[in-house]
Design a binder for these strands. Structure first.
Length: 273
DNA sequence: CAGCAGGGGGCGT
DNA sequence: CGCCCCCTGCTGA
């Protein structure tokens, strides 16, 4: 469990990770333009041998993969197509398992749930989170992972908070974690002003996303920060969690943090999950 | 238009 | 490798 806490931050972006090796990999694949693996038949190149092999399959005329099941003639050009075929046809696993935590609609693939979340509920990716993660819940459904834990130390470092004056960063336990969640929805009173599109389809709009029964928490503060260079916006959510402890009324630790941030905060939003 | 599914690619584990 | 991305064509309300 402790291993899932992210202690390391990429100096070039907002990505965080639990291990130095993860950071090294990230640097190589995310921030290097080196593409040593080149295709002989086209100008495709990539950073990874496995990806090159996958690509080479696309040059073969015959479908490179066949279904192993007896008497099954299904074939496809990608391994993932075969696997999804096998699961659906030969294992009877056709029930949609990806479930929207807002409206409970189910989908067969995470990809399609992603489209749904973005189009129907206006979900976005905060900086440093290039994609959604889906997590299996106790009921077997895959739902959007809303919280990513990072150590308090790292968060303070991210916020350029001087380490002294923190009475709380000393020990890392589950209750002293801060989370970054992957969602922000205007939802309500915002007087926006859609530059483009779009009439409401009938005013229905689930709005308010009151479907908050499952997440066991909590009010989250959102701060949009613009760096000195005016480049990246970081969306921090301070998760007041800890059912056992009273939530520190105004985050004694983040007093300085909030103070520092308020200078650059653009539009704080408060959101429940 | 919403959802499904196949193909192909990126990237974290 | 596995998960998720985009793009795209198909299909059923």
């Amino acid at each position: 469990m402790r291993n899932h806490v992210n202690h390391y931050k990429c100096p070039l972006c907002d990505m965080t990770c639990p291990l130095p090796s993860s950071l090294r990999n990230h640097m190589r694949f995310r921030h290097s333009e080196d593409r040593p693996f080149k295709c002989d038949y086209c100008d495709y190149s990539c950073k990874n041998l496995i990806d090159l092999r996958k690509h080479l399959d696309t040059h073969s005329k015959e479908p490179a993969y066949r279904c192993d099941f007896e008497n099954c003639t299904f074939s496809a050009r990608s391994l993932c197509s075969i696997k999804s075929h096998y699961r659906k046809v030969h294992e009877g696993d056709s029930e949609p398992r990806y479930r929207c935590h807002v409206c409970d609609k189910c989908f067969t693939r995470g990809n399609n749930l992603t489209v749904h979340l973005r189009k129907k509920h206006q979900f976005k990716w905060p900086s440093g989170h290039p994609r959604f993660r889906y997590k299996e819940h106790e009921d077997g459904y895959m739902r959007l992972q809303l919280v990513r834990y990072e150590s308090v130390e790292l968060t303070q470092q991210l916020l350029r908070q001087p380490p002294e004056g923190s009475s709380l960063g000393a020990s890392l336990n589950e209750s002293s974690l801060q989370g970054i969640i992957l969602e922000t929805v205007p939802g309500g009173p915002g007087p926006q002003e859609e530059a483009e599109e779009e009439e409401e389809g009938g005013g229905g709009e689930g709005t308010a996303l009151s479907a908050s029964q499952d997440t066991s928490s909590s009010v989250i503060h959102v701060v949009n920060q613009t760096s000195a260079q005016g480049e990246r916006e970081i969306v921090y959510y301070v998760l007041s969690e800890a059912p056992g402890e009273p939530p520190p009324a105004s985050e004694p630790c983040s007093g300085g943090v909030m103070e520092e941030l308020q200078g650059v905060a653009e539009e704080p939003q408060v959101q429940m999950v």
